[in-house]
Design a protein around this nucleic acid. Sequence first.
DNA 1: CAGTATCCGGTGCGATACTG
DNA 2: CAGTATCGCACCGGATACTG
Lengths: 158, 158
Amino acid sequence: MALEDRLRYTTENCSIARSLDILGEKWTLLILREAFYGLRRFDEFARILGCGRAVLTGRLHTLVDEAILERAPYQQPGSRSRFEYRLTDKGHEIFPVLMALLEWGDRWTADPAGPAVDITHRGCGQPVSLTMTCAADHGPLTVRDIEAKPGPGARPTA
Amino acid sequence: MALEDRLRYTTENCSIARSLDILGEKWTLLILREAFYGLRRFDEFARILGCGRAVLTGRLHTLVDEAILERAPYQQPGSRSRFEYRLTDKGHEIFPVLMALLEWGDRWTADPAGPAVDITHRGCGQPVSLTMTCAADHGPLTVRDIEAKPGPGARPTA
DNA sequence: CAGTATCCGGTGCGATACTG
DNA sequence: CAGTATCGCACCGGATACTG
């Protein structure tokens, strides 16, 4: 999209902005990172993340309201019923966001010791990476191969 | 990674957290979105985004400090020299983060009118999407196909 | 264990105004 | 055009305490 084109449209109806409204607050994506790593319970999140419990309460509520996590009772044999937070399908699909942050961080802000986590294909064990491809199966593409064009929902400036 | 494994490691040396330290403040990714769409100048960012100019100043400085944007003088014929902000290579590689947010937002928070922007393969014109694949070329993978394992830089808890 | 409630100091952000 | 300065408030995170 050329500059003059961009200036013809507003920033309303932006999926990136809407995603960030939900996911962009501090701690939210870190909570989800731990959810992907397998954490489920309030105290586990609080302990591992080291964030304030009040903040955690708020973020978990938001995530449940947005149907990214679901709060479900569970029962450990021999103890009383508790609640846990599990990723929904909507939540699971956030993973590429974390993956993109992980890859960029690994590449540009790496720790000399190497990555703290390896993402592998379960089964074959090979490392996984994020790639951009087009519907005609060209790829992997870089940002220089792609073009952003106004779509059907673009709002022209008044 | 199973829960018990996760609890054996700290959250230090996390590339996701480091990326978010740089990119996670409000407005930062929206500034970069506009940079990808072609904006270059202070007042363009301020006008399109509608964020406070002080905030914009701060974010641009951070992004320049991090070598995500570079501030370069440029000269329009007939007017005096000005500065513009351009994405560096490090900056260009942030695009998958925005792409992931865009795809998730398109899928889960869509506007009834449709997406405001279409990302296409320049040249062939087909829509572009983000996919996860492994080094053995299995894919596209979903999050359920992948496994997160402690890497060489993982820090065991004391 | 799984939260909620409260207080408190710091900071991020929005709004506004000013400058070269 | 490209910022800087200032102000006020909301929110954020830390600490602590309380509840079922």
